[in-house]
Design a protein around this nucleic acid. Sequence first.
DNA 1: CCTAGTTAGTGTCATCTTGACCAGAACTAA
DNA 2: TTAGTTCTGGTCAAGATGACACTAACTAGG
Lengths: 242, 242
Amino acid sequence: MPFSNVAERREQPPALAVSTVIFSLRDDERTGRKGLWLPLVRRTREPFRGQWALPGGPLGPRDSLLDAAANNLRDTTGLIPRYLEQLYAFGDLDRSPTRRVVSIVYWALVREDDPHDTATSVLLDDPNVAWFRAEDPEVLGNLAFDHRHIIEYALWRLRNKVEYGSIAHRLLGERFTLAQVREVYEAVLDKALDPANFRRTLRSTPDIEETDEFLSGGKHRPPRLYRYTGSTTHPLESENIS
Amino acid sequence: MPFSNVAERREQPPALAVSTVIFSLRDDERTGRKGLWLPLVRRTREPFRGQWALPGGPLGPRDSLLDAAANNLRDTTGLIPRYLEQLYAFGDLDRSPTRRVVSIVYWALVREDDPHDTATSVLLDDPNVAWFRAEDPEVLGNLAFDHRHIIEYALWRLRNKVEYGSIAHRLLGERFTLAQVREVYEAVLDKALDPANFRRTLRSTPDIEETDEFLSGGKHRPPRLYRYTGSTTHPLESENIS
DNA sequence: CCTAGTTAGTGTCATCTTGACCAGAACTAA
DNA sequence: TTAGTTCTGGTCAAGATGACACTAACTAGG
């Protein structure tokens, strides 16, 4: 009996939880570009047992919000992103059928081939963790709690509040090619961008500087590697994982 | 003895609270333009008794986050802004010296002469509520808890994430002149803007349309009144007060 | 070793946007 | 009637942007 009496439930003090929305770029056969994917975990308990949900859990008394989010993400999925950013605090009364829960949601973009991204091994072994296309209606339609709502908001934020430079720095590593940055933007905005013009605008920003290194190995002219400098974003908006 | 044992305190479950940062435009003699002011309440209890703090209080079990913020703001200051937007959730372990508190902070811009703004009467009578210049170092330096930090983050957000149209709509009423919108931007960005150019960019946005009315009464040519249409912002980012 | 294929990177041009500023329009106050 | 004020429409030059042509530099396959 997952549903308790509403009036009774509302007298409990609100519980605090943290969740994470992790976007990753993966090849998308349909468009030929990269697309956005995200990891979900299958719920093993009521409510919503068996359904997919965002990684998350209760806020421990000794964890900062960020630490709680990062630790929970690591424990449930094996993912260790470099940065987590606060997305929003969701606190509606009816978010959970059992009790009042206020969830503070963090989000990040990670690279599929990130060395930090030890998740691959965990994800492969654990049938209760898997990646899905972020906009797959089939997936979005069957999520636990209000997680569909949360993901859709995260996608909206991604597309509307993107800044050149900072977002790329978080997703890509120390050094990156301009084409890699462009891939990020093409995936987020879901449209092709002119390589030449993209290069021009990116090189005109002060936060990205070129290095002397090149990335060889492709079947074409080796592209120059760039580095991200500067901190346009507010400290609060891209906290470092401790 | 406001400080209890740290190790002991940290075992308590985190408490949930809401706070509000309300910016208002007031004439500033120094610059000749409008400046940003905000209301603070004097703490009547420990910790930080006697010091100024942001309006706020605990989250009741029956209130949504937004309602809790709006109700608390009304009760402590008399202010009833049309919109509140979620700013950030602050949850560091040492925010409060007594116990662990996670504060979800809402913010808004209000008009000094807003009819909704019944706060004037309350503020005049109550010596524990007052408006201050948002950037007065004297004030910022003596705030309770981490409220200085919160206000500085709100100011940063205001200056960096401003969009034409939406912000003006929230601050100004149904109908407004373009000069009023310009005043908002001049106060927020703290610099003078060219009236003609500002008019041009604003008129080119689809969300603002002209009306047939004019505002008479000034000692100059009556300016045309405009109306805000459209909803560029995500629903989550400008919730209506219920 | 040569050539085709692929992406990197440069340059150009027309168009759109932006900032600075001028000048007339339309009101109030005296 | 005139001075003072802001509103409002306009011009112009400089800067940013989008479309696209073209060269550079690598790999792969013959």
